[in-house]
Nucleic acid binder design. Structure first.
Lengths: 175, 175
DNA sequence: GTCTATATCAAGATAGAC
DNA sequence: GTCTATCTTGATATAGAC
């Protein structure tokens, strides 16, 4: 039977993925078209298809890389003196510094069959460990995710003290 | 000086907005094009522009209506015996029953200048009242929003007990 | 590994006639 | 209030030559 695990990418394909990530990071999802990407690489759009099957593969490669990086960042944060605050701070900071990458990772269902196996679980593990149990971990994750996307989407009122709301939430889950 | 408050919509414009909402609700944001909308109305796409200036006005009209409806639903839920659970249940149920409307309302910055004035505040008020203070209200909203979008986007593991996570979160904020 | 040429499709919006 | 005709722009993707 056929395996759904993604094949290794050729060196050239990795260069293309890196360029795609830069383009996405700088200009957002709408700017990430095969034409714009080709421009950045100094080639023509059809040439990309010799290295990657389609646009989805490109996005999945970026997301797989991001999961690995986020997992490593969570593990580092969890080693500090306040694992829960460390991880949620990392979550918030990542989204503020790389909003377009964050959106790519979170705003739609994952193409789980085509991502690097295990990356999602590895990113989730430190949260479960810091929260103590899976239900609390999911609730904390939801809280952090909600704070983050509502901030990113400019949904809180202009004067809102977001740091206070973050503290309030983390306090609630620590008891 | 010019007012940025949206003008009243003509009866014909309201019919068009209603059709747009149905189309969005049934088939999602990608399906909401001026052409598809015109098809549904039995007219040609350019005719829509005689009634509404552009697509953005169409979306803003839908969002304004939704805020009014959500506000009313929150007020009704807050009148029950458990205001906090009532409101968050209403939030979750709305998103599950009308995912495309929910996404239109929440996935991008609001065009506040072009929405019906006061609608956003009216929807927020019951949460603040139920939570007790603005910081807690924002934290609870973030939790509910996070649970809702993560569920909508299929981000929790298949076997996850989401009702337990919801209970865990609400419990935390009630202490 | 990259090219040109092309297929296919769709989007938002405007001009001006009726 | 609706029409036809059109503009302008853009997307993903394929075939086949070099």
């Amino acid at each position: 039977m056929a395996s759904s695990v993604p094949r290794e990418l050729s060196p050239r394909a990795q260069e293309i993925v890196a360029a795609a990530r830069e383009l996405l990071e700088e200009e957002g999802a709408d700017a990430l078209s095969m034409r714009r990407l080709a421009d950045r690489l100094g080639i023509r759009a059809p040439s990309i298809y010799k290295h990657l099957p389609d646009k989805r593969a490109l996005e999945n490669a970026i997301v797989s890389d991001l999961f690995e990086e986020v997992a490593a960042a969570f593990e580092a944060a969890a080693a500090g003196d306040d694992p829960l605050a460390g991880i949620t701070d990392t979550y918030r900071r990542f989204a503020r510094e790389h909003p377009h990458l964050f959106r790519l990772m979170t705003e739609r269902p994952l193409d789980r069959d085509r991502l690097t196996p295990g990356a999602e679980e590895r990113a989730a593990a430190p949260i479960v460990r810091a929260a103590g149990d899976p239900d609390t971990a999911r609730a904390v994750w939801a809280f952090a995710h909600g704070m983050t996307v509502l901030e990113l989407n400019g949904r809180f009122p202009p004067g809102a003290d977001l740091d206070a709301a973050w503290r309030r939430g983390l306090d609630a889950f620590r008891r």
